[in-house]
Design a protein around this nucleic acid. Structure first.
Lengths: 156, 156
DNA sequence: TAGATCCTTGGAGTGCGCTCCAGGCAAGCG
DNA sequence: CGCTTGCCTGGAGCGCACTCCAAGGATCTA
């Protein structure tokens, strides 16, 4: 029974709720994408997708009978999460760490929770930084706008 | 007369209003800092300060009679602006471009204005991205929190 | 005047995140 | 059958933003 709960927590579905549904997906059950399809859907290159796999950032990817990768909707969800985390500036190594925790199973649940909360704080801090920068830019922009008006009235 | 206005616009003072006064500054007129003092004030390394100069990201820096750099408050202001822009992810090459415009004189005024406005839009877009990421993180965090409660009540 | 500490330079090295290459296999098509 | 297209691999290469090194000069404290 403990095992059951645990399985649910670790279920990839739970760990890949990373965004609104992207277009052009196939329904679950028929979700088999080639690497170039995934590249088109995610904006990553096939090179990058293979590289993510090599460094351990991806779960195991299914292969066709000839050895070609076949990605699932679940893989796309994971890539969407990775994309979001990448936007925050999180180092790839940290994302690999998170991927390892997911692979390791349910006993890493608490650690994942902490990692997510820390990331959340980072994101908040980054937003605050950017808002500070925005204030500086706005001051400079209004300075240039005023200077522009002064020049224009002089010329008149 | 046109020349005068122009001089004001180009005046470095106008281009370095980059933030609240940082602590530990000396008053204008006695503002002579060694490279290691600037490193301490800005958090950059002396290496990085010299490198910024080499690539054209800094204006000309005064030298002591023996050739050592002596930074002014104005230089610190410029570095504060550079720091803010760096936080936005602006490439160093773009900052160099801006520095060149400032050095080039008043006729680059319009171009600087456009560059600042474009940067402002970038920053807004980045903030929006981060808020999207924050939403994803919050969903995952609340998922883990719920799962945690479930596990706890099971154990009870 | 010795020794420690700080500063100078040009150029080489580092770490990250890709990005690409060579050489080869497999499937589809006229 | 040959041709094209797409995918496979390990490993090399690249661009960015630093980061450091070696060798030497300047400054400070005792």
């Amino acid at each position: 029974m403990d095992a059951m709960t645990v399985t649910e927590i670790t279920d990839t579905r739970s760990d890949t709720c990373a965004g609104p549904p992207q277009g052009d997906r196939r329904p679950d059950g028929k979700d088999k994408y080639t690497i170039s399809e995934v590249a088109a859907l995610t904006g990553l290159t096939a090179h990058t997708l293979r590289w993510y796999e090599r460094i351990g950032l991806m779960p195991h990817i299914d292969r066709s009978h000839t050895g070609q990768r076949r990605y699932t909707n679940r893989d796309l969800d994971w890539l969407a999460l990775v994309g979001k985390l990448r936007l925050t500036g999180m180092p790839v190594a940290d994302m690999v760490r998170y991927a390892e925790l997911v692979r390791a199973g349910d006993h890493t649940y608490a650690e994942r929770f902490e990692l997510l909360k820390a990331t959340r704080e980072d994101v908040l801090a980054r937003i605050a930084e950017l808002q500070g920068t925005l204030a500086v830019l706005d001051r400079k922009i209004s300075f240039y706008a005023d200077a522009g008006r002064a020049l224009a009235s002089e010329r008149a």
